[in-house]
């Protein structure tokens, strides 16, 4: 099946005191219609900037998209003018954000904000749009939607607000929903509800989801393919099952080691100990000359510190940016 969204060589930079700093470098991936692709990585790995670059909602300046193509059904979004881009936002691609508490306008009713999104993209009268907004609130399981529609955001809990954000994102019937850490700010029980809701809406609307998260547990629940990002670059790409069973990149291994698991270690008998990855993600303007992960990598050797490994196919349609996996792939 052909891709609905294809990103090629996306590079995003921010201007700093000493010139432009590259925050996302040469990111390429493809999404199939109706599928869920996850981008995982620690804070500062560039995953949110990648997502916002696709919709071009980063403030420019200081941000600039320095290179790459974002092909939506073959049309390069990076070449579109502001007017044309506006018709993409909310209609072809919608986005929900990490902080439901601050992502809604506090002085506008939630109905007003949803109606606004509906009427931006569809030719409906005010009454029709309001009816549609109530229907959308119903679909995201907000109880008593007919009354709730006139509430201001501060009357709603975080989970409810995220549902409102989702309803608003659905207003233009998008083909792709970008969910940037949609459950990070929520209680665990609410997280599960929101994820279940996203999965159900995905099948109802047939939209693709690009899920940005640092939580591998969330990835396991709803994604089919996973991109692992580190310091602005993709270091591994794999189907979700393969990634969990057989991580290729030491960074992915580290992430998995730091994720609580309930079932995988049953045969080991012992309690699974969480192992953290020593050190922190380097600042984008202080990347080491070789592999960006080398200073934290338990398996790093001399070549890692001098030469940067490219992202290369390994096996089963997977990719990895590590000399170790590339050597085994070559010798196997």
């Amino acid at each position: 099946m052909s891709s609905i969204l294809e990103v090629r060589g996306l590079t995003t930079q921010f201007s700093g005191p000493k010139g432009y700093v590259t925050v996302v470098e040469n990111v390429s991936f493809a999404m199939k219609p109706g599928a869920t692709l996850a981008i995982v990585g620690e804070s500062g790995s560039g995953k949110s900037v990648t997502a916002m670059s696709l919709l071009r909602v980063l403030p420019e300046p200081p941000a600039r998209i320095a290179a790459g193509k974002v092909l939506l059904s073959g049309k390069d979004l990076l070449q579109l003018g502001e007017q044309a881009m506006r018709r993409v936002r909310g209609r072809d691609i919608s986005m929900i954000f990490q902080e439901p508490m601050t992502s809604l306008n506090p002085v506008m009713t939630i109905g007003g904000q949803i109606v606004e999104a509906i009427r931006e993209h569809r030719e409906l009268s005010a009454d029709e749009a309001r009816a549609e907004a109530v229907a959308l609130l119903d679909r995201v399981r907000i109880p008593d939607a007919g009354h709730r529609i006139d509430d201001y955001p501060h009357r709603l809990s975080g989970g409810m607000r995220q549902r409102v954000m989702i309803a608003m994102a659905l207003a233009g019937r998008p083909k792709i929903l970008i969910a940037d850490e949609p459950t990070t700010a929520l209680d665990v029980t609410v997280q599960a509800q929101i994820l279940a809701l996203l999965a159900r809406l995905q099948s109802e609307f047939g939209m693709g989801i690009l899920l940005i998260t640092h939580n591998l547990g969330v990835v396991a629940q709803i994604a089919q393919r996973v991109l692992v990002m580190y310091a602005g670059r993709i270091v591994e790409e794999a189907p979700v099952r393969d990634l969990f069973q057989d991580p290729l990149h030491p960074y992915t291994e580290g992430l998995l080691g730091a994720t609580p698991r309930m079932y995988q270690d049953a045969e080991a008998g012992a309690r699974h100990r969480l192992i953290d990855i020593a050190g922190i993600v380097p600042q984008p303007d202080q990347l080491p000359p070789g592999c960006a992960f080398a200073p934290r990598c338990p398996k790093a050797f001399a070549r890692c510190r001098e030469e940067r490994p490219a992202l290369l196919p390994t096996r089963d349609g997977r990719q990895s940016a590590c000399f170790l996996t590339q050597n085994t792939a070559a010798s196997a």
Partner: peptide, 25 residues
């Protein structure tokens, strides 16, 4: 603020964002 990013992600025009979302706040 975050909700202005939301408004932009909805596809609203700069004018509408300025007068309906930024100004009232």
């Amino acid at each position: 603020l975050d909700y202005i990013r939301t408004a932009r992600a909805k596809g609203l025009s700069q004018r509408r964002i300025a007068f309906r979302h930024v100004l009232p706040n």
